[in-house]
Simulated assay, not measured.
Amino acid sequence: MAEVFDLFGDPVPANWGERGRPEHIATQKNRNLVSMLVALGWSNGRIAAALFITVPTLRKHYFSELHFRAVARDRLMANLFMKTWEQVQQGNVGAIKQFGAMVDRNDLMEYGHMARPSAGKPAKQAKQPKLGKKEAAIAAAQNPDRGSALGDLIAQRQGSGRPN
């Protein structure tokens, strides 16, 4: 017997129209959707609601996708990097810019700030007089930490955008 599909392209269960609720059929499209939503950090209840099924049905039919919750985000990002890299190899300029931004974002995630070669040991500074809380806060606001990407950006916007 040929498989019958509903208006959404999902297969119609064999007991459709008979007594009782028809069993959920896990399609590859739904498996991919569950994997993506797990990678995005969605809860089981939220995923089940998006598929119009119950949480026990989700666990029954999509247990393998739910099992890899710890590595799902890394798998999603690896797939995204690979798809973007394929576009870069084809010469897509937008993909080249996007891939550069993805690498920068990955470096920020990995190292906490942009990797920058050190210029050797800093020279010793003269001892500063002790300041109170308010004076120290004002001084810190005027001198952003140039060791991070955000501090470097703030320094450039304040007009002291001299390179190190």
Rank of each mutant, 00 (worst) to 15 (best):
T54G: 14
A50P: 02
Q87R: 05
R46Y: 10
R73Y: 04
R146D: 00
K97F: 10
A72I: 08
N106K: 10
A95Q: 03
E110Q: 09
L58C: 05
P117M: 05
K60N: 12
N44S: 14
A26R: 08
G120K: 03
G112D: 04
Q128T: 13
V55R: 10
R75Y: 04
A72Q: 06
L37I: 01
F81D: 07
Y111T: 07
A72C: 09
T84F: 01
S64K: 14
D107V: 06
A48R: 01
W85F: 09
Q125H: 12
M114G: 15
G151C: 10
W42A: 08
Y62I: 04
N30Y: 05
Q125S: 12
V93Q: 15
A141I: 13
L33N: 03
R59V: 09
V93F: 09
G91T: 08
V88F: 04
G91V: 05
T84N: 09
Q87Y: 00
T27F: 05
E86C: 11
K127Y: 05
A39D: 00
G132A: 07
K134W: 14
Q28H: 13
V55M: 07
A26M: 11
S148T: 13
K134V: 11
L58A: 02
G147Q: 06
P56A: 03
F63H: 10
K127P: 05
A48C: 03
R75A: 06
R31W: 03
P122Y: 09
N44P: 01
A70M: 13
A126G: 12
I53L: 03
L131H: 08
A72G: 04
K83T: 08
M114V: 15
W42L: 11
T57V: 15
N106E: 12
T54K: 11
A115C: 08
V55P: 00
G45E: 04
A126H: 10
N92W: 00
P122H: 15
A149P: 00
A137P: 02
R105D: 14
G120R: 10
F99Q: 01
A137I: 13
R146M: 09
Q89G: 10
Y62M: 06
I53E: 02
N32S: 13
A49T: 02
A95K: 03
G91Q: 06
S35F: 01
D145F: 14
M114I: 08
A48L: 01
K97I: 12
Q89S: 10
N79K: 13
L58I: 07
L150T: 11
W42V: 01
P56Y: 04
E86R: 14
S43W: 07
N32G: 15
A137Y: 15
V93C: 01
E86K: 14
I138V: 15
Q98Y: 13
A70Q: 12
V55S: 01
K133I: 14
S64F: 12
M36Y: 08
A78I: 05
R59K: 15
K133P: 02
Q90S: 03
Q28I: 05
A136Q: 14
K134M: 15
K83R: 09
K130N: 06
N44Y: 08
S148A: 09
A39V: 05
A78Q: 03
N79T: 11
I138H: 10
R69V: 10
A119M: 10
V38H: 00
V71L: 06
H113Y: 14
